[in-house]
């Protein structure tokens, strides 16, 4: 749905985005993840037609954003980093104005406004002036603005920035609920946002692609080990050595009453053997969970070092 090929954007001598390529499949939520000043906003601004690119290609749906900007804009809903609100308008008045500039046919304007109000939960503030509503509601108005013309693609630049934890959860749920009808790309520098809301991610740093793919692909590409974390009631040094004796186990690390047991990726699943051992030796199994190295390690590694692949 979104295809970016060899995109480069320079501001004078500063290269904000360098030879960036990625694609986002239809009907998915994709995160554009990177530290501050990684080029996330620039990438989104190019995709939405706000900025031109120095080099490269980008298309949204069937339209090239440089060749057919108006067609592309019609199928994109965009929430910029600073929510573009007119403080002196009412929520509904603002949304009506948006239907006009987004070319919603006259007959469908009312319906579009009502649908956006409903989907984003703005019913209670619909008649209020935008300057008088809370930060969380402003963010919702921003999202309502982005989806009012029922675009195929939603591009959200840091949709949860500056919100309190409860509002963040609300907005994340809202974004997830929009997945049914829209392909979504959201940028963030917060990792949990990606692991909790997204199906996949494009990770960039200093304008360059570091990794991209679905969350499973990303973690898989990083891990060469499989493993589990065991929590035992009767934890002791002997347990560790017993675990280590299981054929195939490469390493056992103990942290309090938790043991991280690792084995080479792609080998047989050793979980059956481990369970059997724990039960036989009566070690008191409290918990066993997959120790798939999380995307957090990947992200930290990427941000501090070079590309993973």
């Amino acid at each position: 749905m979104i295809v970016v090929e060899h995109l480069t954007k320079k501001y004078g001598n500063l290269t904000a985005v360098r030879d960036l390529s990625f694609r986002v499949e239809k009907g998915k939520i994709w995160g554009l993840l990177g530290p501050n000043a990684a080029g996330k906003t620039t990438t989104m601004r190019v995709l939405t037609g706000y900025l031109s690119a120095t080099d490269g290609k980008a298309s949204v749906g069937p339209y090239d954003v440089f060749e057919q900007p108006n067609e592309a804009k019609k199928i994109i809903g965009y929430l910029p980093e600073t929510v573009p609100l007119y403080a002196d308008m009412t929520v509904v008045g603002y949304l009506e104005f948006i239907t006009e500039i987004k070319q919603v046919p006259a007959a469908k304007k009312r319906e579009a406004v009502e649908r956006a109000v409903e989907e984003t939960g703005l019913e209670s503030v619909r008649g209020r002036l935008i300057k008088n509503i809370s930060r969380g509601y402003k963010q919702r108005v921003g999202i309502a603005q982005a989806l009012i013309h029922d675009p195929q693609v939603l591009i959200l630049d840091e949709p949860t920035i500056g919100l309190d934890p409860a509002q963040i959860i609300e907005i994340r749920q809202l974004v997830k609920s929009l997945k049914k009808n829209h392909t979504i790309m959201l940028s963030t520098h917060i990792l949990q946002e990606v692991t909790q809301t997204c199906d996949g991610a494009v990770i960039i740093n200093e304008g360059q692609l570091m990794a991209s793919g679905s969350l499973e692909e990303l973690t898989a590409s990083f891990n060469d080990k499989d493993g589990v974390i065991l929590k035992l009631r009767r934890a002791n040094a002997e347990a560790a050595s017993l675990l280590k004796k299981i054929p195939g186990v490469d390493a056992v690390k103990r942290d309090g009453n938790e043991y991280r047991v690792e084995w080479a990726k792609g080998r047989q699943d050793l979980r059956d053997d481990i369970t059997r051992l724990v039960v036989d030796k009566d070690l008191g199994l409290l918990e066993m969970r997959p120790a798939a190295l999380n995307i957090e390690d990947l992200y930290l590694k990427i941000v501090s070092g070079g590309p993973v692949r």
């Binding site: 706000y50 804009k73 019609k74 965009y78 910029p80 600073t82 500039i101 070319q103």
Partner: peptide, 14 residues
């Protein structure tokens, strides 16, 4: 200043 420029210029109007 307010940032609404970004809204106008990313809308399908010239």
């Amino acid at each position: 200043k307010v940032g609404t420029e970004e809204l106008l210029f990313t809308s399908p109007i010239s």
